[in-house]
């Protein structure tokens, strides 16, 4: 049982983190808090992906003993153990996802500035009152 928990606990921690952000997105009435929740949610997804890349006893995905540029000619002599390096693909995907996250954050904040200009408040309840 304990072994089972140890083998999965990373996913659970990130899911709890995700749900903290998700709750803030749904339940908070302040628009900036919603955006903070959105960011927590997205960051948790990024951590989730990156944790799938991990292999025990492996190192960063940068080749050791590399001959650098032009190494392709000698590559046949070198044996590369796949289990020696962690999986690079989730890292690549998350680099893209981080950029997407930042972009969403920027646009969301720009929109919030416009909302503030219109209503003079960032509290959703007060905005709804102002509309009525």
């Amino acid at each position: 049982m304990l072994e089972f928990i140890i083998s999965k606990y990373n996913f659970w921690i990130y899911i709890i983190l995700m749900m903290i952000g998700f709750y803030a997105m749904i339940a908070k009435t302040n628009l900036v808090k919603k955006i903070i929740g959105m960011n927590i949610f997205q960051t948790a997804i990024i951590l989730f992906f990156v944790s799938t890349a991990y292999k025990s006893d492996a190192t960063l995905p940068i080749l050791l003993n590399s001959q650098g540029h032009g190494a392709g000619h000698h590559a046949a002599e070198q044996v590369i153990e796949v289990s020696q390096y962690i999986n690079p693909l989730p890292h690549v995907l998350m680099l893209t996802a981080i950029v997407v996250m930042v972009a969403t954050l920027g646009v969301a904040l720009a929109i919030v500035i416009r909302v503030y200009r219109d209503y003079g408040t960032l509290n959703e309840d007060e905005i709804i009152k102002a509309i009525k």
């Binding site: 995905p61 796949v82 999986n87 690079p88 680099l95």
Partner: peptide
């Protein structure tokens, strides 16, 4: 795990031959 054994091994083994870059990411 499937994530580490299906697509990604080729990136690790062939990166020097294909792209001459030691940094796989």
């Amino acid at each position: 795990s499937p994530a580490s054994s299906h697509v990604s091994p080729r990136y690790i083994t062939d990166t020097e031959i294909d792209t001459a870059t030691p940094n796989i990411v």
